[in-house]
Design a binder for these strands. Structure first.
Lengths: 141, 141
DNA sequence: CTTTCTGCAAAAGGTTTGCAGTTAG
DNA sequence: CTAACTGCAAACCTTTTGCAGAAAG
């Protein structure tokens, strides 16, 4: 699991313990092809003969979001592992309405444009949530 | 209540009945300064001595969203009355993190830019959900 | 008068809280 | 060893479903 090493380093760096449950949840998020709910995580683990209490999963997902290691996708209510670094500004998602596949991306100029637009309306933007719903490359007839 | 006449016309035009509960919910949405949950709607009505079953409220809000007369704000989970016409493309929200005030707006060029960006990543966009979180004019120190 | 809509009861899901026991560092 | 974390039990809140009765057109 080299994919979760980065996240583990972040946990350690911020003084959080690197526990078995946290590694299990990170592993599930890394392998998931689409946003997963807390109960999805539990089911996936169960299929491997592993078990975590749902409360534990909720708490771990909260923590991962706090550290920007995961995001909550508002459209589906599920969680995804963050695919980008912390530096890249606001994070956006595209979710395929057919297969549920998601892709994360960031775009600085879009961000700035949005900030400016909000500014004209008297608003100081702190966070952008931006999700697109549509068809991914595979699902386009 | 001239503000809900437009919505009432839409209901009638599409063959839906203009019932007392539907008018009540529309009135609450029109007067609300921030996104309201189904139970918020119920509480607001109760303060006026009116009562609607929560199931009824859920169903009415669903219908209003279907007809684009209201939107579900993903960030807060609440509902707002649509402030724009149908023509203006995708709808966006700004929500004040302090007072909860919201403002709806639309911007064609931003839409097109987003579509293009998605297109480059192989995605055909059908719906944009875009919400900004920050401070409104009033709440900026 | 008939179709649509609402209210009620109940169930099903999802999320949160407090506390005792366990584990990582 | 000790602070942080997890599991369990229970409560709580949100959302959905089915059906009988009421209301709109």
């Amino acid at each position: 699991m080299p994919e979760i090493q980065g996240a583990i380093r972040v946990l350690r760096a911020k003084g959080y313990k690197v526990t078995q449950p946290r590694k299990q949840v990170l592993k599930v998020l890394t392998q998931a092809q689409k946003p997963v709910s807390p109960y999805d995580v539990q089911k996936i683990l169960q299929q491997r003969g592993e078990h975590l209490d749902h409360v534990t999963i909720y708490r771990i997902l909260d923590l991962l979001c706090l550290l920007n290691l995961a995001h909550k996708v508002l459209l589906s209510g599920g969680f995804v592992k963050c695919a980008l670094g912390d530096e890249e500004g606001c994070h956006r998602f595209m979710v395929c309405r057919q297969c549920g596949a998601f892709q994360e991306f960031a775009d600085k100029s879009l961000c700035e444009e949005e900030n400016e637009l909000a500014w004209h309306l008297g608003f100081r933007t702190e966070q952008h949530f931006s999700e697109f719903f549509g068809l991914c490359a595979k699902c386009q007839g």
